[in-house]
Design a protein around this nucleic acid. Structure first.
Ligand SMILES: [Mn+2]
Ligand SMILES: [Mn+2]
Ligand SMILES: [Zn+2]
Ligand SMILES: [Zn+2]
Lengths: 138, 138
DNA sequence: TAGCCAAGTCAGACATTGTCTAAGTCAGGT
DNA sequence: ACCTGACTTAGACAATGTCTGACTTGGCTA
């Protein structure tokens, strides 16, 4: 992700302080932040950055394939910079904590042709749910 | 689902015209309606029924386990009266059409202990995505 | 059957999350 | 340094869902 700015420039995008800051916030940490969390962290670095720009930039990073949108609940979407290695998510049903998980097997092969109804199936999303250790202890 | 009203009564619930109508709307058809779609159909049978009551009743049916909430996209939740046989969903990425599907295998067994991080994993949701025949033709 | 009252319903305010608009600003090429 | 279209901004708007507080009623009791 550190060369993201290069790739953006290569696509003819203007490099702005706002885009740099959003990329910085997502860089490194393997977290799943909401747009407003990204905004809060961006504001710490660039106080005048607007919510709209954060949304715009996140949307751009998603279409670029640099960031994934994760919607595990009805709350705010989460933005996942771990777009490199395919993975699924394990979510705490109580506190909402999210972990990346790497299941074995390919769920796509578990869907027989007779269950595809003529769809061209291209993707599958798996969300595991349970209670995290810290909620179980409490 | 036809004996739902009996079960509700058995739980000490009052039987009202509103609850009867919402149950009727969901009965039978294997569809995935939004709350507002349920409301629209309910209004056809009972013009003065309110949106709040439809939301309340759907929430009650969900806690009863009679109806499932399905959130395949960022749009409105869908209410699924097919709560009897476990199944997953196949969603058209273009038009949003939803089909019930019954994959083989158990995705829970695809998540090794080493990938559970101490969670008590109890449930898994699988959403297949693709293009439906009618969108592919267009 | 009449009366009671807690459970249920209602309209509409409010909350959350995200998108859109239109006016101002600026990055980068010339 | 100047231009210009891409970018940013504040705030309005939209979609979905929740909450409130006054009103209504199902079903029990006598
Ligand atoms: Mn992730
Ligand atoms: Mn279904
Ligand atoms: Zn937890
Ligand atoms: Zn389609």
């Amino acid at each position: 992700m550190s060369d993201l700015l290069e790739r953006l420039r290569g696509r003819g995008w203007r490099m702005t302080a706002q885009r740099r800051v959003v990329a910085e916030v997502l860089d490194g940490e393997h977290v799943h932040l909401t747009a407003d969390e990204v905004h809060a962290r961006a504001v710490a670095k660039l106080p005048e950055i607007s919510r709209a720009t954060v949304y715009n930039t996140l949307g751009e990073l998603v279409s670029l394939g640099e960031v994934l949108e994760v919607a595990t609940d009805r709350r705010a979407k989460r933005y996942d910079p771990n777009a490199h290695r395919p993975h699924q998510h394990l979510v705490c049903a109580r506190c909402g904590a999210i972990r990346d998980v790497h299941p074995t097997g390919n769920p796509l092969s578990d869907l027989p042709d007779s269950e595809r109804f003529g769809f061209a199936v291209s993707d599958v999303e798996v969300t595991y749910r349970g209670i995290c250790p810290s909620c179980a202890a409490a």
